[in-house]
Design a protein around this nucleic acid. Structure first.
Lengths: 146, 146
DNA sequence: CTTCCTGCAAAAGTTTTGCATTAAC
DNA sequence: GTTAATGCAAAACTTTTGCAGGAAG
């Protein structure tokens, strides 16, 4: 389910082209950084890990998001985080520490996923919402902050 | 399960006192505005609905949050929203429109709630997290934006 | 009267934008 | 060569803070 690094770039490239965008060196660098991190990164994180101007990071993440290669993640913090799109990694959820802001990836049993999907689909339909996705996170205190 | 307005103030008052804070007129005004709105309000919303300085709104919401009377809600937008604490209303989830930012409250069947709770409790324990709460939202497109 | 809350204005932090230059195709 | 991406600096927007004055207990 998780693509090898080689075909990861292939996939991102295709999605960018599909929306009339180029897969430039900077964008490649960002995708690799997000892939290495394996959990949602803040702009500050990225600034420290890659050598790129801040405005380029913002602009390229926005482009990558519109191409469906990257997802913007909201946490309890007052800045955004970014991660590779779920279908370039695998469907997962987040453990968010409300004390230090740390974010970890977790998966839950497929049976529960299916229940959640089915229920929310119904909820959305009844309220005139077109459901695109759900967000199921655990907010708590991580072992370091306990 | 939903307290009448009279005892709502009673409850908020008690929680504020418990953390050494006063239930001032401004805070009462904010609680009433949030209660009227019935869904998460942004600071801009509150500025329009109540006649209070911006800094007082921020400061009082922070106090009310620390007292456990109000909850800070993060959406896909790049500003926060606030709502009354869940045990002053009732446990619910959000339909978030990724196009216009609109947020609606919804409830899901108690049986699914219980499944989710049980599963996340286990997930949290295995990863050293102390689970305080979960967040289950539907991200989609509302009927106006469809 | 003493402590905490309020209001204004300024500061801090995150994200966006204008425009000249450079890289991609 | 033409079009789109980049880099820098400035602007926009959300949120926080310092401090003098006012309300609450």
């Amino acid at each position: 389910m998780v693509p090898r690094t080689a075909e990861l770039h292939e996939l991102v490239d295709r999605r960018l082209r599909a929306v009339g965008q180029r897969y430039t060196q900077q964008r490649r660098t960002l995708v690799e950084a997000l892939h290495r991190d394996g959990k949602p990164s803040s702009i500050t994180d990225l600034l420290a890990h890659v050598q790129l101007p801040q405005s380029s990071i913002y602009r390229n993440l926005t482009v990558l998001e519109q191409a469906g290669a990257v997802r913007r993640v909201v946490t309890e913090e007052d800045f955004a985080r970014y991660e590779l799109a779920e279908d370039l990694t695998e469907h997962h959820h987040h453990l968010i520490c409300s004390s230090c802001g740390r974010v970890e990836d977790v998966t839950i049993p497929a049976s529960l996923e299916a229940d959640v999907d089915r229920t929310l689909e119904g909820v959305a339909r009844r309220t005139g919402f077109a459901s695109i996705s759900h967000r199921l996170d655990v907010i708590g205190t991580c072992s370091d902050c306990a």
